[in-house]
């Protein structure tokens, strides 16, 4: 199809869709006047019931825990697909480039990273990991949770890449470990849900005593789910970063970092 024909096809379709969208928006409550029955109810009952002060997290992992299981599986499957797609690609390229890989070698690439960047980067790794663990474990109390903290943990890996070398990054995060972390996190979430079925008689039912409001272990099984999700997200995103970096480095035929 020519571009002109496509634009002519797009114009009425987009205009129609946008008209529907605008028409739909006119039926919404005025900005700032929303009265959601579920939201209002949760804002009232969640803290007395679950003792977790972050309602977004107690909704995500407890009241909507079953949906989050599906969300986790989306993440798991998507990263699995990504790994399958990119590794097939890598296999082909490695065969092609095996010949001159030996000649070029990977030495002499280190000098590309400046000392300042390297020192700053390695100094950042520790705080980044601590911040990530803090966000995962304090999800029940303050803004954060497994998803957000997991992403912060995965960025620690990128800081290592930025500061040091690709080889150093591979050393601190061997692929089997990342894969195992991702799979363990996904499985743990399902198993904790199963604990609800066994102990409380319902899948994904909170079966642990919620404790006292404001303590680190409040919220029953919510901190456990946060850790499971944090592990999975950290594993999944590190795996994705690493697979993409592998591709970049293969395409450049480069063992170091920019």
């Amino acid at each position: 199809m020519s571009r002109r024909a496509r634009l002519w096809l797009l114009a009425p379709a987009l205009a129609g869709t946008m008209a529907l969208v605008v028409w739909g928006f006119t039926g919404l409550a005025d900005f700032g006047h929303f009265q959601g029955a579920y939201g209002n109810l949760l804002a009232k009952v969640a803290v007395p019931e679950r003792k977790a002060t972050d309602i977004v997290v107690s909704t995500t992992f407890d009241y909507r825990g079953f949906d989050t299981l599906g969300e986790e599986m989306i993440l798991f499957t998507a990263v699995l697909g990504l790994v399958v797609l990119l590794r097939e690609l890598r296999g082909e390229q490695e065969e092609e480039e095996e010949a001159h890989d030996d000649q070029e070698g990977h030495a002499g690439r280190e000098h590309r990273t400046s000392d300042a960047l390297r020192i700053f980067g390695f100094g950042m790794v520790g705080p980044t990991v601590v911040l990530g663990v803090y966000i995962v474990t304090h999800g029940t109390l303050t803004p954060g949770g497994g998803f957000q903290g997991g992403v912060v943990l995965a960025t620690a890996l990128l800081v290592v890449y930025l500061a040091g070398r690709y080889a150093a990054m591979r050393k601190v995060s061997p692929l089997p470990l990342l894969e195992a972390g991702e799979a363990t996190g996904a499985m743990a979430y399902g198993l904790i849900g199963l604990g609800g079925l066994i102990i409380a008689g319902m899948y994904m039912k909170n079966f642990i005593d919620p404790g006292t409001k404001g303590s680190l272990l409040s919220g029953g099984f919510i901190p456990l789910l946060n850790i499971a999700v944090g592990l999975e997200v950290a594993g999944a995103f590190s795996l994705a970063f690493q697979e993409f970096l592998d591709q970049t480095i293969l395409l450049r035929g480069d063992g170091g970092s920019e």
Binding site: F34, Y38, N40, A43, T60
Partner: peptide
């Protein structure tokens, strides 16, 4: 407070 349910949905949206 603002509605927590839509915030949870947004979190799901971001992850997906």
């Amino acid at each position: 407070v603002v509605d927590p349910v839509v915030q949870t949905l947004t979190l799901t949206d971001v992850v997906v």
